[in-house]
Design a protein around this nucleic acid. Structure first.
Lengths: 256, 256
DNA sequence: GCTATTCTTCGTACAGTGTACGCAGTTGAC
DNA sequence: GTCAACTGCGTACACTGTACGAAGAATAGC
């Protein structure tokens, strides 16, 4: 995170925007822009250069208008982010895998992962109170479908879906960070490590960390880097679903 | 994230700062500040008001000096963050639980959780290339100790430790976001929900989301909020360790 | 003690940020 | 034709990290 926040304005205005229920004005000049047009431009900027680059001025430039013009369409930047979020959630295929909760949860994880990879700025948006737009709500409904009817309580269903979502968020965040730091520094992980080793040797406390040295070397040899995103994602997801499996298995088995 | 980054400067300078190996200058005026003093002031600001508030000017104010003075001690804000990170990692008790990998990993998770809760700004610091200070290295060594000698490969040891760390990061991030949004909005989750319901009813598509309605209601009744941090953390950690258990169990059992 | 060198503190400046305020011009309702 | 409603947007404010260079302090070498 540096977290970016949702709009804190009144729910009526936010929901009006999310569900496109704004009544068209009868008088005054015809608006030059549309909500969808602004969101498209903002998504273009955010996808290309990240949330940091997505300033109101930059989005306005993209549309050939002044910065303050955007405030005729959105109460503030927070509300624009809300609509951007709901919009990209609409990209989820939301494929349903019936009869196999593990495959269904796997699908949920992978679709979410693809979405984060396509829109890495999503990782920086705080969603503890998600914008209640059509696609946000459809996403939650779809995720619950994956764990419906397998013997979990409603609370456990919610907790499981949250757990998978949290896992994917963390895994992709780590992967994206790793990718971005290579870009920003112009250095691969190996180069970075090799630049540090001589100075660390000089400090000379390395023998106090025998496990780190052994494991670090093994990881470096395997991946040419201290971190491999693909491997980490698969490993973690398997552990996680195994953990859920232990719970589901207990639940469907007769109680002792 | 809005991610804050580490210092990208040369490793020599960074390691010198992290390990406090800067040679004391012989000539010139006596420095008015120390590295530790600046870090303490910066931690005070970050703990109290978050990373957003921790500007160079604010830290300098805290110390009664001009903003540019700090640049005599640190090449830039990134390096200051690096030393802050290594410093708070030093707060970990690093208790070792011998002979029981599950209890040991549980301890790792809980100590990390406490650290994040005490210093929520840690959640916003990108650590894909961690500052190689004494406490960062000791932390990794301690975490590996928890899974040493239980039949995992070196790669699996690293992946397991990363998985637990990633899980804790995500769980605390969600919890902290939830706490902060209450502060910022001056609204409890229940109040927020009740403010939205009438407008959602008016939009009238709620019957398209039956699972969400049922599960959401159950969660709301149980916790008076759509999210309970304590419950989510315990539930997720148990699933995670169960998943690791499945792997360790396979490994220690004789191979087919 | 004198001077040259090194090291300190820090004021100013620059290009950015979100958005409050208010003005000028355009459109449709009456 | 008049007025209210509406649009676009210029300006301003308080912030950010930090490059640059000036002014002064402490010491090494003589």
């Amino acid at each position: 995170m540096n977290q970016e926040h949702s709009g804190s304005g009144d729910p009526a205005k936010s929901l009006e925007l999310l569900w496109r229920r704004r009544p068209a004005p009868t008088r005054g000049p015809k608006p030059a822009l549309t909500v969808d047009g602004i969101v498209t431009a903002a998504l273009k900027v955010a996808d290309a250069d990240g949330l940091v680059a997505m300033s109101m001025r930059r989005v306005a430039d993209e549309l050939g208008v002044g910065a303050m013009t955007l405030y005729r369409y959105f109460p503030g930047k927070g509300e624009l982010l809300d609509v951007m979020l709901d919009t990209v959630y609409g990209e989820l295929p939301r494929r349903v895998v019936p009869g196999d909760w593990r495959a269904a949860l796997d699908e949920v994880a992978r679709e979410n992962r693809e979405l984060y990879l396509r829109h890495p700025w999503l990782l920086q948006v705080a969603i503890s109170r998600p914008p209640l737009g059509p696609n946000v709500m459809a996403k939650y409904e779809w995720e619950l479908t994956a764990v419906e009817g397998i013997g979990l309580t409603d609370l456990e269903m919610d907790a499981t879906v949250s757990l998978v979502n949290g896992y994917v968020h963390g895994a992709v965040r780590t992967a994206v960070e790793a990718r971005q730091v290579i870009q920003r520094s112009g250095m691969t992980d190996k180069e970075w490590w090799l630049a540090h080793v001589p100075h660390l040797d000089q400090i000379g406390d390395l023998e106090k960390f025998p496990l780190s040295s052994r494991v670090g070397t093994a990881v470096g040899n395997e991946f040419d880097a201290p971190y491999d995103a693909e491997h980490a994602f698969e490993y973690g997801l398997e552990r996680l679903l195994d953990g859920v499996s232990a719970l589901v298995g207990n639940r469907t088995a007769p109680e002792g």
